[in-house]
């Protein structure tokens, strides 16, 4: 049976390219939305089998649209198709019921293979994102048990941030240094505090120095 697809992306040129690719793959693109509001409206009206949602869209972002569509259409498959490889967006999308999270930088073969995998009940995720998601699940599971986890449980990115904190960087400066948003830094910082079992960034910095985290940098 032909899969009916709705695509939501505010960039029409990109949308046009994806539509062509999907149609060549035998799918029927039943609707195109240029913003989040339109995505929700069309999804409820057209009831597609698959919804491809960009995250950064005017009026309503893709994550909000995801929540609304998921609430109304529990059987629809929803995949985020975005430039954002921000962990926070990935985790939020999965928490809100997205069956996939694909980056626009993916090659066309990988993209189409991921969409075909959805039909077999597989999640549409790259290996890299799957690994990050599993680390996140593992860390949050242990956090719920209220156990301080130590430096070894910090992700590579969290360790980088902790080093910067120990060097006295503010969130804003750390965000600039790591080339991520201030919100992402806040998110990582929250995880660091939980994993280390400390109350604030000063305690985290002290923990880092005591644990010798800056030693490699000094030598």
């Amino acid at each position: 049976m032909t899969r009916r697809v709705l695509i939501a992306d505010d960039h029409s040129l990109f949308r046009d390219g994806v539509v062509t690719l999907l149609e060549a793959e035998g799918m029927e693109v039943v609707g195109e939305a240029a913003d989040g509001e339109m995505a929700v409206e069309l999804a409820l009206k057209l009831k597609p089998d698959l919804v491809l949602l960009d995250i950064h869209m005017p009026k309503k972002n893709g994550l909000e649209a995801l929540r609304e569509i998921r609430a109304q259409l529990p059987d629809a498959q929803i995949v985020m198709l975005t430039v954002s490889d921000d962990d926070e967006n990935l985790f939020e999308a999965v928490r809100n019921g997205a069956q996939g999270y694909l980056l626009k930088s993916l090659n066309s073969h990988g993209f189409l293979a991921s969409l075909r995998g959805l039909e077999r009940g597989e999640a549409a995720l790259s290996r890299k994102l799957t690994t990050r998601l599993m680390s996140y699940v593992a860390s949050t599971t242990q956090i719920e048990e209220n156990k301080p986890l130590g430096l070894e449980m910090l992700s590579e990115r969290e360790l980088e941030l902790l080093k910067l904190v120990a060097l006295g960087y503010s969130n804003k400066l750390a965000a600039k240094e790591l080339n991520v948003s201030a919100n992402t830094v806040k998110y990582h910082m929250k995880n660091i505090l939980r994993k280390l079992g400390v109350k604030n960034r000063a305690e985290a910095a002290a923990y880092a120095v005591t644990a010798g985290i800056l030693r490699d940098m000094e030598s």
Partner: peptide, 10 residues
Amino acid sequence: GSIFAAGIAR
């Protein structure tokens, strides 16, 4: 061979 490039090629 990005998604976009493959799409516009088609």
